[in-house]
Design a protein around this nucleic acid. Structure first.
Lengths: 228, 228
DNA sequence: GGCATCCACATTTTCGAAAATCCTACGCTC
DNA sequence: GAGCGTAGGATTTTCGAAAATGTGGATGCC
């Protein structure tokens, strides 16, 4: 999202570093965040670190307690379900609008994004981190392209934010390799509907896709994978 | 939204002060924001002012340009239409869920909020600011209550943010008293549908309500009211 | 013994100045 | 005269320390 372009100020770096640390699990849900530690982690003074925390808080990755500092936002099944439900609503509508307004250039971008993604090995725990991160990026790109023709910057921005927020949960499920899902196929199905200009079908497939991811993560939670 | 509770840190005060200044028009759309001026306005040092600007930027009230500071986010018809469209989607769904899940306590809160609002004089330019602000608060309360039973904290939060963002535009239309609209009646209609558990009717009435507000503001824009 | 109060410590929040960056205008070259 | 590079000034960004605030424990009182 902003990770790559955002490096022209120290505060931007701090944001990227802490964001990554939270998503990777180095900083655990609920954990108190002390400025001294974060300064050491980021290698800078308190001001940019604080600015990064303020921004992360606005986006729901950390929570702030007046005069008691910040902590990593906790994870919960309730929030996961809430995020997924809202994503289904927002991205569903964004996809519908995209199908309505998208031109052939959009179709081309969609084909390209899917092609690149499908040529990459599916994310798995035994793969090097770099390759997994590459898959994540391509996967995000595909979903971005899918809704990119909806002509609503606000909708796009909200979807992007929810995507990143959901990513924290999705990462949990990645560590369990055995999923009886063909994720590539699910994406293919969405794309096929979209290229066919079958909005109802595409939206339904997209919502199913998210619901399955949610179910997988929810199962993990109930098996007690949230504790540590 | 956070204006009232937010006063335990200077940064919170700064946020409230600048937020108010932008909404009231003291700080104009597109205007460059210099730290020296804002420090004078808020009566504090640079750190809390900067923190406030970071938060306002995350919420779309200001924009930031690396190493060139902040400026007030511009207004545009395109953004207005985008905001209204997204609100119709989000609040429509939130209202539908609220009607589905709301209990009699929710109905009671709804009646109460509407009653208080309807007993207040309709906002007009010739009224004292205090009274107009009171109406704004009650109006916001009513819409808040309307969706408060939807059981989706994320949806509620997004609606709240878009409400405040739309408020900047709504304020423009208030200064033109002659509107052939009975706003109280529109609210009554939404509430009646809601209490009847007629979700489709309520959602349609709500969307109509927002569309009319949007149309009124859009007309103003086209008459050139955006310049100054 | 239970409860409130106060003190010392840890931590956050804020300050004021230093460093970094950007914009402007001037002068120099071609 | 136009273009390029550069010093000066204005502004933002960052720093390191001071002030403010919350926390936990020890002490004294009922």
């Amino acid at each position: 999202m902003k990770d790559r372009a955002e490096a022209r100020t120290l505060a931007g770096d701090a944001y990227a570093v802490i964001h990554r640390a939270i998503r990777s699990g180095l900083l655990k849900p609920g954990q108190r965040l002390r400025f001294a530690d974060l300064q050491a982690l980021c290698g800078m003074s308190v001001s940019p670190v604080r600015e990064a925390l303020v921004r992360l808080t606005a986006e729901g990755f950390t929570v702030s307690d007046d005069h008691r500092g910040f902590s990593v936002a906790p994870l919960s099944i309730a929030e996961l379900l809430d995020i997924v439900g809202t994503r289904k609503l927002l991205e569903g509508e964004a996809l519908r609008l995209s199908i309505e307004h998208g031109d052939s250039a959009w179709e081309g971008r969609l084909l390209a994004a899917h092609h690149v993604m499908s040529r990459l090995p599916r994310e798995r725990d035994d793969l090097p981190t770099a390759i997994r991160e590459d898959w994540d990026l391509r996967h995000a790109d595909f979903h971005r392209v899918l809704i990119s023709a909806c002509r609503s910057p606000i909708l796009i921005e909200l979807c992007e934010k929810l995507f990143v927020r959901a990513d924290r949960y999705r990462r949990l499920s990645v560590s369990v390799p055995n999923q009886s899902r063909d994720v590539v196929c699910e994406h293919e199905r969405i794309m096929a509907f979209a290229l066919d200009r079958n909005a109802d079908g595409a939206v339904a497939a997209l919502k199913e896709h998210y619901q399955r991811t949610a179910d997988a993560v929810e199962r993990l939670f109930q098996e007690g994978a949230l504790v540590d």
